[in-house]
């Protein structure tokens, strides 16, 4: 019995290890390529890591694009957008799960229905709206359409519904109002969900491509994904600088993930209703 369990554990570990390697392989390879010269990259058989690491590709990234500026722009957009989404979706979710008002079901379905409209379809209409507001080529223009998210609202509402109403009743008996219950009890209890939303939203906004490209016209307003295409050569095959650029812009995403992943694990293990 014990050995069987033991064998099972080894199996799970081996499978996890293989899956992990598969996932991390492209990242490792891009890291390897970022240190290779063009001629070494195209040698046969292909190499995973260079014989002599060179820093030229990184020098190209920093000299031919204002990558620091791009990262700053992306960080601002992703941070403000994520914060906005957290605020709007948690407040809306609160209303839809705890409050009673006329047309509640209708408005809930109404918001959900927006999830069915593909974002690409709204691109031009959104552009027209932003252009009418005179926000083209501004941070506000990029962020404005990112401040709300039906998906995250839905996730939070579903989560709020799993939290027993007893918490709210008990808090209200002790003299708590809606705002205080929301801020001091509900949100802390929802940390795992809020963390996963933060990670998903931040990564999504950090990697946004088409919308930031459409609404920004000047180089200084570019976000990282748009900026990184400046390193591409339409007719060539110079992967080194691109991979170096990708590696550089990957770092903030990893940092954000590491910070909020802790919360995620902590929340999962400490959450739940006890008694």
């Amino acid at each position: 019995m014990r050995t069987k369990k033991h064998a099972m554990e080894i199996m799970v570990n081996v499978v996890s290890l293989i899956a992990g390697l598969l996932v991390v392989f492209p990242v490792l390879y891009s890291l390897g390529v970022s240190f290779m010269s063009a001629s070494e990259l195209s040698s046969y058989p292909p190499k995973l890591f260079p014989d002599h690491a060179i820093w030229d590709n990184y020098a190209t990234v920093f000299s031919s694009t204002p990558v620091i500026r791009f990262m700053g722009n992306s960080f601002l957009v992703a941070a403000v957008g994520t914060l906005g989404r957290l605020i709007t979706s948690s407040l809306a979710a609160y209303a839809f799960s705890y409050l009673e008002f006329r047309g509640k079901r209708f408005w809930f379905l109404f918001i959900l229905a927006t999830m069915m409209i593909p974002g690409d379809m709204l691109m031009i209409t959104n552009y027209m709206t932003i252009a009418d507001m005179g926000l083209i080529d501004s941070y506000s223009g990029i962020i404005a359409v990112m401040l709300v998210s039906a998906t995250f609202m839905f996730m939070l509402r579903q989560h709020f519904l799993t939290i027993s109403r007893d918490y709210r009743d008990a808090a209200f008996v002790d003299g708590c109002g809606d705002v205080r219950f929301y801020l001091q009890i509900l949100l802390p209890m929802s940390m795992p969900v809020l963390s996963s939303i933060t990670i998903a939203s931040f990564l999504g906004l950090w990697n946004a491509y088409l919308w930031p490209l459409l609404v920004t016209n000047s180089e200084s307003m570019r976000t990282v994904q748009v900026g990184i295409t400046m390193l591409q050569f339409p007719e060539g095959m110079v992967y080194g600088p691109i991979m170096a650029g990708v590696t550089v812009i990957l770092i903030p995403s990893i940092i954000v993930f590491l910070i909020f992943q802790k919360q995620l694990v902590f929340g999962v293990t400490s959450g739940g209703l006890k008694g």
Binding site: Y127, M128, D132, I136, D137, L213, N217, E219, T229, Q232
Partner: peptide, 23 residues
Amino acid sequence: FQGSYGDLMKKVRAAVQAKDFKN
């Protein structure tokens, strides 16, 4: 620089459709 030829065209079309001549 406005991305690939395809991306550049999308931007021109969006601005033309929106009659956003300023941009």
